[in-house]
């Protein structure tokens, strides 16, 4: 083995010594012990690697991330059999409990400003579409649903709404991840959809386009399909039992 080959292999030797028992390194380590130049290089290399490793270990996850992970997992769990629920526990209360539990842990920390990740929001929309009690009231809600149903424009352009007016007029309002969100049902070309609107979230910097817009991401869920997108600080999800093709056709 040449010195160059030994260096190449020793570059993969972890600075904490965890690879000392790995036979793949035995020959290179033996050579380092007998070659002063290689040994000096290896000592420098390990010292350098150890310093970087210890610095990276100092970086802590943001407060609230652990709770957000646990909340997201709770939303994803399948509900108990409906017959058992309906005898003792109204379905809407189950939804509220699942959402409330998620919120309770999510409310803490900076992740609150960030809002749920698109995947978690999609899971929530799917869960509510499947198990929630739908139906809002008020003229404003009706107008909104009619606009969504008849619009020929892509949903991402038609979904904008006067959040406060809709909420005050009786539009169905849920609470998730520390925020109120509106839900409205509409039908396009014979297919029923559920639109969820959450405001006050920060779009991801990495994927944000013009005016903070985040293009739709599509998720196949147990109950159907969901698309999630953002415009500025408003995050939308549209869910349908009709599947991905129907959801994609809205955009």
């Amino acid at each position: 083995m040449t010195q160059s080959e030994a260096r190449f292999i020793l570059s993969a030797f972890r600075p904490n010594g965890a690879d000392a028992v790995d036979p793949s390194f035995a020959e290179a380590l033996a050579q380092a012990s007998s070659d002063p130049e290689l040994r000096a290089w290896f000592e420098h290399s390990r010292a350098h690697d150890a310093r970087i490793a210890s610095r990276l270990a100092e970086i802590a996850p943001p407060p609230g991330l652990r709770e957000a992970i646990l909340a997201g997992a709770r939303v994803s769990r399948p509900p108990p059999p409906s017959s058992r629920i309906s005898r003792f526990w109204p379905v809407w209360l189950t939804v509220a409990a699942a959402a409330g539990l998620a919120i309770a842990v999510w409310l803490r920390g900076p992740l609150l400003a960030r809002g749920p990740s698109p995947m978690v929001f999609a899971a929530f929309a799917d869960y509510d579409m499947t198990h929630g009690h739908h139906g809002g009231s008020g003229a404003a809600t009706g107008e909104w649903a009619a606009r969504l149903a008849s619009s020929q424009t892509p949903l991402s352009e038609a979904a904008g709404a006067d959040f406060d007016r809709l909420q005050q007029s009786g539009c169905r309002t849920l609470h998730f991840a520390g925020r109120d969100l509106l839900e409205v049902c509409f039908v396009r070309e014979g297919v029923q959809y559920h639109l969820y609107v959450m405001r006050g979230v920060q779009p991801a910097r990495g994927s944000a386009g013009a005016e903070g817009a985040r293009p739709p991401g599509f998720f196949a869920e147990p109950g159907g399909a969901v698309a999630v997108w953002s415009v500025g600080s408003v995050r939308y999800a549209v869910a349908s039992r009709a599947g991905l093709a129907s959801v994609r056709s809205l955009f």
């Binding site: 957000a68 997201g72 978690v120 991801a204 910097r205 990495g206």
Partner: peptide, 20 residues
């Protein structure tokens, strides 16, 4: 990802996929 919010999203999504 080079930014904290996207990193948080990625970790959330990873565990979410695990949960499902």
């Amino acid at each position: 990802s080079r930014n904290a919010p996207d990193a948080g999203d990625l970790v959330q999504q990873t565990y979410f996929i695990w949960a499902t």
